[in-house]
């Protein structure tokens, strides 16, 4: 079963860390990725640049509009993701609780959809 673990934290808080704190967090995240690879959970994952580097694209009536942002006024921003394979939700919760920024912000666990299965006939 595949889950996407979305990592959220307050950029304001994390980016005001001292250099030492920041580096030790980065080291921890690298080690976490390694250990998840070793346990066979890790399918992929990346850390993201801060939200002010983001671009939003929309297509309306065939017309593409590009803006900066998202501008949603949220306390926590999306900071990265882990794409994992887990036995079930309890296993995924175990994995999420090992992701270092879980201590600073939160991890949202989303089961992934199987689009092919949704197109298969006789789906209730």
């Amino acid at each position: 079963m595949k889950y996407l673990c979305l990592v959220y934290y307050s950029e304001a808080e994390v980016y005001s860390m001292s250099k030492g704190e920041w580096q030790s967090l980065v080291r921890e995240c690298l080690a976490c990725g390694e250990s998840l690879r070793a346990s066979g959970h890790m399918l992929g994952g990346e850390a993201l640049q801060p939200v002010h580097t983001a671009t939003t694209v929309r297509v309306r009536n065939g017309k593409v509009t590009t803006t900066d942002g998202p501008f949603a006024e949220t306390k926590e921003q999306l900071a990265g993701f882990y794409f994992i394979e887990a036995k079930d939700l309890n296993d995924a919760i175990q994995v999420a609780s090992r992701i270092p920024p879980a201590r600073l912000g939160s991890i949202e666990i989303r089961p992934v959809r199987d689009l092919h299965a949704e197109l298969a006939p006789n789906v209730e």
Binding site: N90, D91, P111
Partner: peptide, 14 residues
């Protein structure tokens, strides 16, 4: 069903 919450008694640590 969708998030696959398992049918189990949690392990000691949980």
């Amino acid at each position: 069903r969708v998030a696959r919450i398992p049918y189990e008694v949690p392990p000691r640590e949980a």
